[in-house]
Simulated scan of single mutants.
Amino acid sequence: MSGLCQDRVVVVTGAGRGIGRAHALAFAAEGAPVVVNDVDRDATAGVVAEIEDLGGKAVADTADVADWAGARELIGTALENFGRLDVLVNNAGFVRDRMLVNLGEDEWDAVIRVHLKGHFAPLRHAAEHWRAEAKAGRTPSARVINTSSGAGLLGSVGQGNYSAAKAGIAGLTVVAAAELARYGVTVNAIAPAARTRMTEAVFASMARPESGFDAMAPENVSPLVVWLGSEESAHVTGRVFEVEGGKVSLAQGWRHGPAVDKGERWDPAELGAVVQDLLERAPGPEPVYGAS
């Protein structure tokens, strides 16, 4: 390995399995000490053992990242064990999929909590630390990589709660990038497609057997995340990348499109033709995942 993240201290949430585990191992392979966070104590301990067996440095953390105090303790774990924090990878999450007419309040709240608040709370405490460092004259070269989803960028039938949370994460990413740049912090997001416990039924058969390349392996996502966590990525912030197999693409977010300005208030009866004109001049929307 190149040592791209040598001695850069990394926190990875939801790192007990799947994509998070792949991130933790990939960072460790590039020389980074890693805080392996997951509420599953056994899974977390297993990833720490894997890293240590390969000669890397890691500590376990089982805090609930959507709990305010737990998120603060997570950032403290990095500082207490390794003396610094350079990279925060927000990855923790789960799904409670249902069509909107069947979606319960508890299922909505749980998914919004673990994804959206579970991104905000660690980010908030990490940002407080980095701001203090910058004000003390020790401006960091810090990185945050959030985890959105194609469901958040385009929508996904049967995943209203998950899509809303992941769209919120994309919005949070661009705001945090703008606010934290003055403190030496970049903030980007990925929208990965890979086989995990959340997606195994969907992606179970998707691979490239003719080449031996498993396009849906979670390990395919991690190289970009490691690069975004490195010193090399200092010029990249406020971006969302889609990652699937060997494909990396830059997502194009909401942009100002065609416009008509009357210069005064519209009458409702006038707007049918105006809206039709705007629709004809704009590209059509990308299809929602799962829509017929």
Rank of each mutant, 00 (worst) to 15 (best):
residue 227 W to N: 10
residue 88 L to A: 09
residue 139 T to C: 03
residue 47 V to A: 05
residue 158 G to A: 14
residue 127 A to R: 04
residue 283 P to I: 09
residue 266 W to N: 02
residue 150 G to A: 05
residue 265 R to V: 15
residue 58 A to D: 01
residue 53 D to R: 15
residue 19 I to S: 04
residue 270 E to I: 09
residue 55 G to M: 01
residue 20 G to R: 04
residue 136 A to D: 08
residue 262 K to E: 02
residue 197 R to S: 14
residue 145 I to L: 11
residue 6 Q to E: 11
residue 82 F to M: 02
residue 22 A to F: 04
residue 176 A to G: 10
residue 182 R to I: 07
residue 200 E to K: 15
residue 216 M to G: 11
residue 227 W to S: 05
residue 117 K to G: 04
residue 248 V to P: 01
residue 84 R to C: 03
residue 68 W to P: 10
residue 167 A to M: 06
residue 6 Q to F: 06
residue 237 T to P: 00
residue 40 D to V: 02
residue 139 T to S: 02
residue 141 S to I: 02
residue 103 L to F: 03
residue 248 V to Q: 01
residue 4 L to S: 02
residue 280 E to V: 00
residue 122 P to S: 12
residue 279 L to H: 11
residue 197 R to Y: 07
residue 230 S to K: 05
residue 260 V to C: 01
residue 217 A to P: 13
residue 259 A to E: 15
residue 94 F to M: 13
residue 34 V to N: 11
residue 152 G to R: 05
residue 99 M to K: 11
residue 224 L to C: 09
residue 123 L to Q: 03
residue 121 A to N: 15
residue 225 V to K: 03
residue 130 W to T: 07
residue 135 K to T: 04
residue 201 A to V: 15
residue 251 A to K: 14
residue 140 P to W: 05
residue 228 L to D: 04
residue 255 R to D: 08
residue 138 R to H: 13
residue 125 H to T: 08
residue 223 P to K: 06
residue 194 A to T: 08
residue 259 A to K: 07
residue 59 V to C: 07
residue 260 V to T: 14
residue 41 R to S: 12
residue 172 L to C: 12
residue 276 Q to V: 02
residue 180 L to W: 10
residue 34 V to W: 08
residue 81 N to V: 07
residue 145 I to M: 09
residue 155 G to L: 08
residue 215 A to M: 13
residue 105 E to Q: 14
residue 222 S to Y: 05
residue 49 A to Q: 09
residue 237 T to H: 09
residue 281 R to E: 11
residue 190 I to C: 01
residue 232 E to L: 12
residue 266 W to P: 02
residue 215 A to H: 02
residue 41 R to D: 11
residue 154 L to H: 12
residue 11 V to K: 05
residue 110 A to C: 11
residue 172 L to G: 05
residue 137 G to C: 03
residue 98 R to T: 00
residue 254 W to P: 02
residue 89 V to D: 12
residue 86 D to E: 10
residue 113 R to P: 08
residue 287 P to H: 09
residue 258 P to L: 01
residue 109 D to I: 06
residue 172 L to W: 10
residue 285 P to Y: 08
residue 18 G to I: 04
residue 45 A to I: 09
residue 25 L to I: 13
residue 110 A to F: 09
residue 16 G to V: 05
residue 99 M to H: 14
residue 173 T to G: 03
residue 143 R to S: 05
residue 105 E to W: 14
residue 81 N to K: 07
residue 207 A to K: 15
residue 277 D to F: 07
residue 147 T to D: 00
residue 176 A to P: 07
residue 55 G to H: 04
residue 129 H to N: 01
residue 48 V to L: 01
residue 35 V to W: 00
residue 256 H to I: 14
residue 221 V to T: 11
residue 134 A to L: 03
residue 94 F to Y: 15
residue 103 L to P: 06
residue 122 P to V: 14
residue 193 A to Y: 09
residue 259 A to G: 01
residue 283 P to F: 12
residue 138 R to Y: 02
residue 286 E to C: 10
residue 59 V to A: 03
residue 126 A to G: 07
residue 98 R to E: 13
residue 83 G to Y: 10
residue 59 V to M: 07
residue 177 A to E: 10
residue 279 L to D: 13
residue 163 S to G: 15
residue 76 G to T: 06
residue 3 G to D: 14
residue 150 G to F: 01
residue 237 T to M: 11
residue 44 T to W: 04
residue 111 V to Q: 06
residue 190 I to Q: 04
residue 264 E to V: 03
residue 162 Y to W: 11
residue 1 M to R: 12
residue 166 K to A: 03
residue 86 D to R: 00
residue 155 G to M: 07
residue 242 E to D: 06
residue 28 A to G: 10
residue 262 K to R: 12
residue 40 D to Y: 07
residue 53 D to L: 13
